[in-house]
Design a protein around this nucleic acid. Structure first.
Lengths: 207, 207
DNA sequence: GTTAGCATGTAAGGAGTTACATGATTTT
DNA sequence: AAAATCATGTAACTCCTTACATGCTAAC
């Protein structure tokens, strides 16, 4: 059943869930979602759109040739019911490589349209993935097997970065958890609370 | 002229420059170089070795069937003269995407076998690449265009990671510059200073 | 005697890229 | 009238992955 995976498909579905768009506009928004680098090219976007359409996950409203007259036909795509289902499915499921850097980044980018429980699962999935890395990195540092100083420095730097991200995730998870209880209406001060709400993780760092 | 690029080729050449190795052993070392994740598979390693051999960059000494008798024939590869040239060329040149996370990580991993001036160029290339990112990220934060709080938080975190890596690079560059006259020993031991990406780009990679 | 690790490969395919091809519209 | 930007696509290729196929040896 076309388990296509791929960051691109997910990003497209996510963007179309916000609002219908045509290819060219999509490509610009994708830069925002995937980061300014890692821009996708038309050579992969348009084929992706065709295949999503064939799969029945998106449709193009040929009805009105949209807004301005004259211009070349814009193919404006929007999600179908199956498309919406699929998006939720993809966001939720922790497939083999769903916690990779890119994959997590895209999922995070659509958090605003995601249910609280799914958000939590994603954050926790990412955290456990990072903790594996951290484990490997720190054992590799402990049992120093004649590493030259550059390799050593690289490992040290990498380890610290991972630890940092884990702390970041811990804060987000904590915030997400008490937002969960207070559900509706005003959830207070989420913006500033990332600082020390549950800043349990070793505050040794000052800079 | 087989401008193959690709992280794998570079990593293989780098490892073979240290010592001759056979495929299976290479694959284990590659995990070290590329980071424990992003392990390459035999399905890409062996074809890569064949093609490097065809290109005359590596050779296999069929002469002695190496060490232990009995075992299956080990194809032990080593660099040819052209291979060594090519390695230096690849390490030095700042091709289109030589400062990507992966590409930089691999280059850094072989610093111990690299000339001081090349090291400097690599570090500076990486830094300027990161500074572009930083610029884009911080303008994007300044001109906040109705970003939801998650996107905002992601950007903030990404920006901090990039800034951290720039500081790390600054220290390395400084050390490299006066280490020019002095010698080994100290790597910047300023303990509380690090950022993202080692062999594998910790998510801060976009923005 | 069977699992685990060593050792090498091939075939098929996924996810994307670059380069090309086309054409309309707006800005300079 | 030239250049930029909007808009859509195709073809060929790259780099890598998964799954398969093979066989030997060491350890449990």
């Amino acid at each position: 059943m076309s388990r296509k995976s791929g960051v691109l498909e997910l990003a497209v579905l996510g963007l179309l869930h916000e609002s219908p768009l045509h290819g060219y506009e999509l490509s610009k928004r994708l830069k925002g979602v995937l980061g300014p680098l890692r821009a996708i090219s038309y050579g992969s976007l348009y084929p992706c759109l065709s295949s999503l359409q064939r799969a029945g996950l998106i449709t193009t409203d040929d009805s009105a040739s949209e807004t301005g007259p004259g211009r070349r036909k814009k193919n404006v795509y929007k999600l179908t019911a199956e498309g919406k289902e699929r998006l939720q499915e993809q966001l939720a499921e922790g497939g083999p490589s769903a916690w990779d850097d890119d994959a997590f980044g895209v999922r995070f980018a659509f958090f605003a349209q995601t249910d609280a429980d799914v958000r939590l699962r994603i954050l926790e999935g990412r955290r456990s993935r990072l903790e594996e890395r951290k484990e490997r990195a720190s054992t590799s540092l402990r049992t120093r097997e004649k590493l030259d100083r550059y390799t050593l420095e690289l490992q040290r730097h990498g380890l610290e970065a991972v630890e940092r991200e884990v702390r970041w995730l811990n804060e987000l998870i904590a915030t997400e958890r008490d937002g969960d209880a207070v559900r509706p209406n005003r959830v207070p001060s989420t913006t500033a609370s990332t600082a020390t709400t549950l800043g349990q993780a070793t505050e040794g760092d000052h800079l």
